[in-house]
Simulated scan of single mutants.
Amino acid sequence: MSEAQHAAGTLTLLPAAEHPELLPETVRSALPEGAWVTAIDPDLADTAALVEAAGVPREASANCVVVAGRRDGQERVAACVVLASTRADVNGAVKRTLEVRKASFLPMERAVAESGMEHGGITPLGLPADWRVLVDRRVVETDWLLIGSGVRRSKLVVRGADLAGLPNAEVVDVSMPAQ
């Protein structure tokens, strides 16, 4: 657990499979083996707040954002998972990967409604089956990282490589340096 603990800073990690009360059902059913969970103050669910409050390393924390674009009248939705030390290149790499003319963030209300997750807690685990999951290569190369849990009151710590094995996951370069 010591390597996993690094990704959690000062937060207390618990075996995720043994603490279903901290996770929504859709996420519980998608947990990779060996995943950890930690309870957090919901006011600290946003990455910047948690990094500062709990000493979570930015390079061991990932964000999941939902984007969409249209092509030939068909909407293409994807969840992009990038390290917190970077940001999703929505107007470049994501747009090219989705093969759309324009990609933009899905409105928060819609992302929350369609994912069944809370704003500030959206995770690549347990997403709708028809959503693509674009996992940035840097995420996959990270041993352990802190990600959303589907709710604002907890976070997960999982191996980056486990995200590459999720249904509909594609390992691609979709990040750019944070500004």
Rank of each mutant, 00 (worst) to 15 (best):
V135N: 09
R152I: 00
D43H: 12
N168A: 15
R132H: 13
R96L: 06
M108F: 03
L134M: 12
D130K: 10
G55M: 10
V67N: 12
L98V: 08
G73K: 11
V94D: 04
G73E: 07
L125V: 02
V151L: 10
R71C: 06
A39P: 14
D89W: 09
D72G: 07
V139H: 11
A54G: 10
E114S: 04
V77E: 04
V112M: 08
T123P: 01
C64E: 02
G55Y: 14
R70S: 13
V51I: 15
P57G: 05
E52K: 14
K102T: 09
P42D: 07
L50H: 02
R70V: 14
V171Q: 11
R137M: 01
E99I: 00
D130H: 15
V82L: 08
D41V: 04
V81S: 06
N91Y: 02
V158K: 09
G69C: 13
V67E: 12
G165E: 15
W144H: 15
Q74T: 12
D89I: 10
G121F: 01
T97L: 11
G116D: 07
L134H: 11
D72Y: 02
Q179K: 13
A49R: 15
S175L: 03
R87V: 05
L145P: 07
D143C: 01
E52G: 13
G55L: 04
A93C: 06
L163A: 01
S104P: 02
D162K: 04
W131T: 08
P167S: 02
G160P: 07
A79D: 09
K155M: 01
V133Y: 01
E141I: 01
K95N: 07
E99A: 15
K102F: 03
A49D: 15
V82S: 07
A49S: 14
R70D: 09
P42I: 08
V82Y: 07
F105M: 15
M108W: 02
N63V: 02
G120R: 09
L145Q: 09
K102N: 08
V135M: 08
E99C: 05
G73R: 11
A88F: 00
A164F: 00
R137F: 01
T86E: 13
A129G: 12
G116M: 10
V51L: 11
R132Q: 15
P167Q: 03
V51A: 12
V140R: 14
E59R: 14
G126P: 01
R153N: 08
T86N: 14
M117V: 03
F105S: 05
T38W: 03
V140S: 10
A39F: 02
A68Q: 13
A68T: 11
Q179V: 13
A48N: 11
G126E: 05
E109L: 04
I40W: 04
E52D: 14
A161Q: 13
A62K: 12
R159G: 03
L98Q: 10
R132G: 12
R159S: 05
S85D: 12
R101F: 03
V172R: 15
R137H: 10
L83K: 09
A79M: 07
